[in-house]
Every structure is written in C-alpha cells, then in structure tokens.
C-alpha cells in the first residue's frame, strides 16, 4: 500500500448556486510524481484541490488518497497524509508566532511536545527560515510568509504536498527560491498554478483543466506543445 497515491474517479461537483465546477474528473497520481494542475480562472483548480482534503465532497464519484476513500471516517488520516498550502498565506498563518503556527498541525495530531519541537525546527530549516521562528507571521514579507506556510504543513510530515498558486505574489528571487525548494521535496506534489515557467521547472506531468473537465494529462513538454492546450491556456495570446 502506498500513502502517496492520489486518485479521482469520475468526480462531479456542483456548487449550491448550481455552478458545475467539476465534470467527471478522473486521474491517478502515484508516488513521488510532481504534477501541475493548470487552467484558466474558474476552470475548477481550487475546487479540485479542496476535494483532496475532504473540505468539499463530490456529488458523484470518488476521491482516494493513499488507498483510502476520502470520507468522514478517514478525514484525519487523509489530512495527515496531505499537506495543503493555501493560496493566501494570511489565511494559513493564524498563530502569534511562526513557531506556534508550524507547531499547530503536529499538536493537533497529538504529537508529544518534544517531538513537536524537533519537527518545528526541521520544517523551518527545510524552508530556510529558522531565524524567523519567533516573529509574528503577519509582519513577514510575502516570500517569507509563503515559506512559513509551507513549513506549517511540512511539520505534519505529509506524504503528498498540495499547493494552490504557490508562486503568487512572489518577487523573482523568492520565486526562484520556491522552485528550488519544490525540486528538493521528495513528496508527491500537486501544484495548481498559472505560472507556466514554474510548471516547466518543477513538474514533469501536467493536468489541464478546462470548464470543470480534464482537457489534457501527460508529460509537461508534450502537453504544452499541444495546440488545443495552448489555445485553452491562452499561450501565444
């Protein structure tokens, strides 16, 4: 059994206002893969990601993480396996210091306090912001906030990293650092992004979403060479 597996089988989702956000999405992501989820605004990227941690549930179809279906009974197991980095770090960082924020997940998981300390240290080192541990998160720069937000999920030692727009609002240097970090992680990675350069640098596989359905799924270079994909993503104008 692999914890690193992420699978959707014919997933449909309709928002209460009637918007069909996902229409029969199926894919299977295996151990160690780095997958980009691309598509225009409103293509369904964020909706899809929220299904992976059970915050949204399909009206039809099934989501599986690490061989277990995402249902009420498995939620804590699933959320332990999937580390979710939200689009706006300000939503993710809510404790008074970076250290406490990074400790929040492990503490909720019931990790003993001496292990929590070690995990916090390791997670902060991994994203190279150990020196910011005692700063309040709302006083950090955008790049530092992003790194802190990533640390808050790394401390939960997830098998799968899910990130919504990880390079949004980053300056070129912070973005390069992020790409370096992403390439260093050995987790299974799923990144929803508009940043095609980031995709080329950090993901070997791309899933293209268009109006709630999968338009293309394959090796990055091949997918980006496809005419229909280029049209849908608005590459070449």
């Amino acid at each position: 059994m692999s914890h690193h597996l992420v699978e959707m089988r014919d997933v449909w989702f309709v928002y209460p206002d009637g918007t069909e956000a996902l229409r029969g999405v199926s894919f299977r992501i295996t151990h160690g893969e780095s997958v980009a989820l691309v598509g225009g605004n409103g293509a369904g990227k964020s909706t899809l990601l929220l299904h992976l941690i059970g915050i949204l549930r399909p009206v039809r179809g099934e989501v599986r993480v690490g061989d277990v279906p995402v249902v009420d009974a498995t939620l804590s197991q699933v959320r332990r396996a999937v580390g979710y980095v939200f689009q706006d770090p300000d939503d993710q960082l809510f404790m008074p210091t970076v250290r406490e924020d990074v400790a929040f997940g492990p503490v909720n998981m019931g990790v003993p306090s001496e292990d929590v300390e070690r995990r916090v240290r390791d997670a902060l080192e991994e994203v190279r912001i150990g020196h910011l541990a005692d700063r309040p998160p709302y006083r950090l720069s955008a790049g530092e906030k992003r790194a802190a937000a990533i640390a808050t999920v790394l401390s939960m030692t997830p098998d799968v990293l899910v990130m919504d727009e990880p390079s949004a609002n980053l300056d070129p240097r912070a973005r390069r650092r992020l790409i370096g970090l992403l390439r260093g992680f050995r987790h299974t990675k799923i990144l929803a992004t508009h940043d095609l350069e980031l995709v080329r640098a950090a993901c070997e596989r791309v899933i293209v979403l268009d109006r709630g359905g999968i338009l293309a799924d394959g090796v990055t270079s091949a997918v980006f060479a496809d005419g229909a994909v280029r049209e849908a993503l608005g590459i070449d104008g």
Binding site: I53, S76, R79, F86, Q92, N108, S113, V116
Partner: peptide
Amino acid sequence: DRAVRVHRAMRARGFTGDVRYAGI
C-alpha cells in the same frame, strides 16, 4: 469569506475545535 478560508486552513491541519498548547 476570509473567515471561511481561515477555518478551512485550520481544518486542513487537523483542527477539531480545541486549541491545544504545545508549550507546557
């Protein structure tokens, strides 16, 4: 809206309603 997003982020990290204290 913002509160919903913060709450989601907390639930994603295993929040169940009690804030626990790492430092004793």
